[in-house]
Design a protein around this nucleic acid. Structure first.
Length: 419
RNA sequence: GUGGAUGUAGCUCAGUUUGGUUAGAGCGCCAGGUUGUGGCCCUGGAGGUCGCGGGUUCGAAUCCCGUCAUCCACCCCA
């Protein structure tokens, strides 16, 4: 049997209403904040991701689905959205044409990781990006929006963590200081952290090994190394968050795993137990140097991504009553079936959902099917009805049944739904 | 890439410790009870290479070896 490949899964008809609810709510809210939808390709030139995300990151070094096209060029299924959106912004000069460049994208991403709860190789994100705005109030708008989005999508219990990772001026100084401090503690750290001390010292900060925690708490903090500009920016972000009553918690250990982040970084962690170890539902930050690094104008950027699978897991379940059918037509015999086909078309033309059980044998079986499918009305056409030129229309909610002249049948149904 | 758990009917699972006739249950599906009426109830039916391969044995879902898959966790991220 051919199965869905490792780390991918089908979102079945029973689940799609929940996904649509999330997407619809998100689209409505994003429109209120002035965001417009963009849809970029699911694959790009490999170079784009290598240059934007950073060659030393886990994503680029071991998680990308990369393949050679037939002409020999290297392509990669997108592991995240920002790079592609940034590319599109540059390619189409969007910053020149759009006075307020706010974009969002909903779609699948691909990373070759070991699957676990809340982590799949194909997963879906809602990505929100704003370009060309450098002021702290933009950071605050994005953070407030991220909370509002999760809230309107049904996730009530989440903690917002905030940090600043500095910029090209001050972050290298901090990394140097961190590496220095780690050297003196080296022999007391876990094996992973000793390795990280060299490869990517920032990663030591979110180590989960209990024995390392005390040491990590004593390490230098990025916020003590921020340059004056970054410090002022961070302070202003915090002041305005307070102004808008946005609850947040500082987390000096919050360092994003992608190289392009600058200054503000944030993350929302679900309190729900439903998520397992991967409880981060939303993450993002500012990336002021990215567009220029990719060969575009010197354009600031800030964005975040919501993991939709995780959001669905963390959201309160709402029963969505599936109304698949307004009228279920039950013809008995071949002449009646022909009339039912016509009636089905006419009902649909008038805007109602109508179904016929094409395979049905007996009346009882068709009634059962009508009930299972949640039909509001059943319209029966048997020998009695044919002889008198009527439909027997049964209201499935109260089991009341009445006869309706054939020529008024569609009008009768219409009045039932509109009146 | 590493570690742990689990693979039996469409779904959820018993049965595996202590090997023993035709492998069970609930739900779902189909049909009948009601030859023109759904839900509830009753009766019957269909549906399984017991993940796959090999081994031990008179005999394997059950014991042994291998392998694959899924889940959870590490790593890391949304």
């Amino acid at each position: 049997m051919i199965r869905a490949v490792k780390g991918t899964r089908d979102i079945l008809p029973a689940e799609t209403p929940g996904w649509q609810r999330v997407e619809d709510a998100a689209r409505r809210l994003l429109a209120r904040y002035g965001f417009r939808e963009i849809r970029t390709p699911a694959f790009e030139e490999t170079q784009l991701f290598a240059r934007s995300i950073g060659g030393e990151t886990d994503i680029v070094s071991k998680e990308m689905y990369t393949f050679d096209d037939r002409d020999g060029s290297s392509l990669t299924l997108r592991p995240e959205a920002t790079a592609g959106v940034a590319r599109a912004v540059i390619e189409h000069n969007l910053a020149e044409t759009d006075p307020i460049l706010k974009l969002f994208m909903i779609g699948p991403m691909f990373r070759r990781e070991q699957p676990q709860k809340g982590r799949q190789r194909q997963f879906h994100q809602i990505n929100v990006e704003a370009f060309g705005m450098t002021r702290p109030s933009v950071d605050v708008e994005m953070i407030e929006l991220s909370l509002a989005l999760l809230d309107c999508c049904g996730m009530k219990e989440g903690d917002l963590f905030l940090n600043s990772v500095g910029d090209a001026n001050c972050r290298p100084r901090y990394v140097a200081a961190l590496r220095e401090a780690l050297r003196t503690e080296e022999d007391r750290l876990c094996a992973d952290c000793r390795r990280r001390s060299e490869t990517n010292p920032l990663r030591v900060l979110d180590c989960k090994v209990a024995a390392d925690q005390a040491i990590i708490e004593r390490l230098p903090r990025i916020t003590d190394y921020l340059c004056p500009q970054c410090r002022d920016h961070f302070n202003e972000v915090r002041r305005q968050l307070d102004l808008l009553d946005v609850p947040y918690r500082l987390n000096h250990r919050l360092v994003r795993g992608l190289d392009y982040y600058t200054r503000t970084t944030f993350e929302i962690v679900a309190r729900s137990e439903a998520l397992g170890a991967q409880n981060s539902v939303l993450g993002g930050g500012r990336y002021d140097g990215l567009i220029k690094d990719l060969g575009g104008p010197d354009l600031a950027g800030i964005g975040f991504a919501i993991g939709m699978e995780r959001l669905v897991l963390a959201s309160s379940r709402v029963e969505i009553d599936e109304k698949r059918c307004d009228v279920f037509l039950v013809p008995l015999g071949a002449p009646a079936f022909d009339r039912a086909l016509v009636a089905q078309r006419d009902l649909r033309r008038s805007g109602r959902s109508a179904l016929i059980d094409h395979e049905a044998r007996g009346l009882k079986a068709q009634m059962r099917k009508a009930d299972k499918i949640g039909a509001r009305y059943v319209a029966l056409l048997g020998d009695n009805e044919l002889a008198r030129g009527v439909w027997s229309v049964r209201d499935m909610t109260d089991s009341r049944q009445e006869e309706v002249p054939e020529e008024d049948f569609v009008g009768f149904i219409e009045r039932r739904f509109n009146g």
